[in-house]
Amino acid sequence: MSGTFTKSMARNIFYGGTVFFFLLFLALTYDTNQALPKRDNSQNLTPEVIAGKKIWETRNCIGCHTLLGEGAYFAPELGNVYVRRGPDFIKAWIQAQPTGAPGRRQMPQFHLSDKELDDLVAFLKYASEINTANWPPNIEG
């Protein structure tokens, strides 16, 4: 048995298999790219949303929260927080941090301006409208 299946055969199957599946992956990526405009809410990718994404990134919100289920698991999912709480609550909440409640997980105060808060909310609204195949299962995220 081991006489017929040689190291060279194994190596060639490795190269062939890897190339084949990588090409398949590229094809699926191309198709995904073509399909995205119908799902990704990119028609609402406004300058405010782009600015909001930058605030999301530069305050490292993903360091505590998840967004579409990805990130850290210390604080709530924010992909649907726009639907769960609405823009006014989100802004008020961010402005009111930290709660200082003893023993409760704390969120920093980021000293965001009104424009920055509006941009961030725009980003969260945009995220909530992406077609995520009905994820999360409920409003709690």
Partner: peptide, 20 residues
């Protein structure tokens, strides 16, 4: 071989709920 043959397309298990 088993790694890449399963893992390359296996990337798709991260693409369920992100809008793909």
């Amino acid at each position: 071989t088993l790694t890449l043959v399963t893992g390359i397309i296996g990337t798709g298990h991260h693409y369920y709920w992100i809008g793909a």
